[in-house]
């Protein structure tokens, strides 16, 4: 994974680009000549950029603009300034939705980074190579179920009448603990977070295992001589050396739980009441239920801006000491 790295960006090409001195007429002419000479490269890239411009670059720009419009299919868009944003914030449930998504986002760190790290350390500590391989294999198995099906299976697990959780509780005589996990406002959000428990079977564990395997044996030997073992080694050696992986997975899980509303949509659709509603789901409903596409674009823009902000903060906080080990 490290070999395919951003560092490969700088291969060759520096020499003839160095000739491109801006502001120098000769340089401009030389550049134009070089461009004409390499027409084949541009011709080969043309279909890629044509598709990118229409279907990838244009939609976000359109969204950025239309967030300030009243917008629906088959009707001319009307400029409304900040009305869509104001409407979202004065809408009585927006505070709750924001609180919900923040809870999901920081729990995303626990389920997407901490739990996989613990699992990876456990497997890494196993000395026998055969069981190690078996465990690594077993981690992939739940990922062979499509995401939606996996969520639907969890819906069945939470089912108040048929699900195994309540059946188990009734079986051991804890009837009063049995409840409608997804239908009770007090537990619904936690049930959504609990999906995938114990959260060890995802790409996180595999990424950390890869990172730990890259730490050289001599580092561990040196560590042992200094009498640094067990939790102290994990804290002082392992974590600093897999910081690149931590950053990658933090971005993945935090941005993922901030923007995606797939699970909420499948499990509760924001209910009961607004107990599990999140801004992403509101965006969906505003667009596809009530037809307010401008309003929905505004929510999309807010989520986008917050996601970029978090991306920036995470990149600042978790900077690996060596870019080598980062992804």
């Amino acid at each position: 994974m490290t070999s395919r790295d951003l560092s490969a960006r700088g291969i060759g090409g520096a020499d003839e680009l160095a000739a491109t001195e801006w502001g120098d007429e000769k340089g401009v002419r030389a550049t134009l000549r070089a461009m004409r000479r390499s027409w084949q490269a541009y011709a080969l890239l043309f279909p890629i950029f044509a598709l990118l411009i229409v279907f990838v670059y244009y939609p976000p720009i359109l969204g950025l603009v239309r967030a300030f419009y009243e917008w629906a299919p088959l009707r001319p868009a009307r400029f409304v300034g900040f009305e869509n944003f104001v409407n979202y914030f004065i809408y009585p449930e927006s505070g709750r939705e924001i609180a919900n998504v923040l809870k999901l986002t920081y729990m995303g760190f626990v389920t997407g980074v901490i739990a996989p790290f613990v699992m990876a350390e456990l497997i890494f500590s196993i000395r026998e190579t055969v069981s190690k391989e078996i465990y690594r294999f077993a981690i992939v198995i739940p990922m062979l179920v499509p995401g939606v099906v996996y969520t639907l299976l969890w819906q069945h697990i939470f089912d108040p009448n048929l699900g195994p959780i309540n059946s188990f509780l009734r079986g051991v005589g804890l009837n009063h603990f049995a409840r409608n996990w997804l239908g009770d406002p007090a537990t619904a959000l936690y049930a959504i977070i609990a999906v995938g428990f114990p959260w060890v079977s995802g790409i996180g564990t595999l990424v950390f295992l890869g990172g730990l395997a890259q730490i050289s044996e001599s580092v561990f030997d040196a560590c042992l001589i200094d009498g640094c073992t067990g939790l102290r080694r994990i804290w002082q050696v392992d974590i600093p050396l897999v910081l690149g992986q931590v950053r990658f997975l933090t971005i993945l899980s935090v941005i993922g739980s901030l923007t995606t509303f797939e699970r909420v949509m499948i499990l509760t659709r924001g209910g009961p009441g607004y107990a599990t509603s999140v801004p992403g789901l509101r965006m969906y409903e505003r667009a596809f239920v009530t037809g307010e596409f401008g309003y929905a674009s505004a929510i999309g823009l807010l989520l986008f801006a917050f996601a970029l902000f978090l991306l920036f903060v995470i990149n600042r906080l978790l900077r690996p000491h060596t870019e080598e080990i980062s992804h």
Binding site: L17, T20, S38, L45, F304
Partner: peptide, 28 residues
């Protein structure tokens, strides 16, 4: 291949990896 503006063009593609999909959903 070597050609002028190779790195800026490549950067324009690479930068897309960091654009969260959520802003494109409705306009798409």
């Amino acid at each position: 291949m070597r050609f002028p503006f190779r790195e800026p063009l490549y950067f324009m593609i690479l930068a897309l990896l960091t654009v969260p999909w959520v802003i494109s959903f409705i306009p798409s």
